[in-house]
């Protein structure tokens, strides 16, 4: 297991830079990971999505699909892409300190 120094914290991460211990997550870490993902500043809308993901994960133990997010009314797919260009679930889940969404293979 690798560790990483970020925003003044030491965090446990996997090979792809996803947090492996959500207990270590905080907002400063999220801001720093966002910059690594090419998002200069997390807006209020970003935070709405990130909080939704964290709540969803807490409740279900999995990441929502894009369809679920669309149906949740939290954010539509076009906006999700404009907030997290080039891989919204992959990026938002990393910033939120959650697992990368996976399939079975």
């Amino acid at each position: 297991m690798a560790t990483k120094e970020i925003a003044g914290n030491t965090i446990d991460v996997n090979e792809e830079g996803y947090l492996t211990n959500f207990g270590q997550w905080n907002e400063a870490i999220a801001e720093a990971i966002a910059i690594e993902e090419g998002i200069e500043k997390l807006s209020e809308r970003h935070w709405v999505v990130l909080k939704y993901l964290q709540d969803f994960y807490k409740e279900n133990g999995t990441m929502p699909t894009i369809r679920k997010m669309k149906k949740s009314g939290v954010v539509d797919t076009k906006e999700l892409y404009s907030l997290f260009p080039g891989g919204p679930l992959k990026k938002s889940s990393r910033i939120a300190g959650l697992k990368k969404p996976e399939s079975c293979i």
Partner: peptide, 12 residues
């Protein structure tokens, strides 16, 4: 694919 790769499990 909508996934981040053809295989998303690290081992595969």
């Amino acid at each position: 694919t909508p996934l981040s790769g053809a295989f998303t499990k690290q081992n595969c």
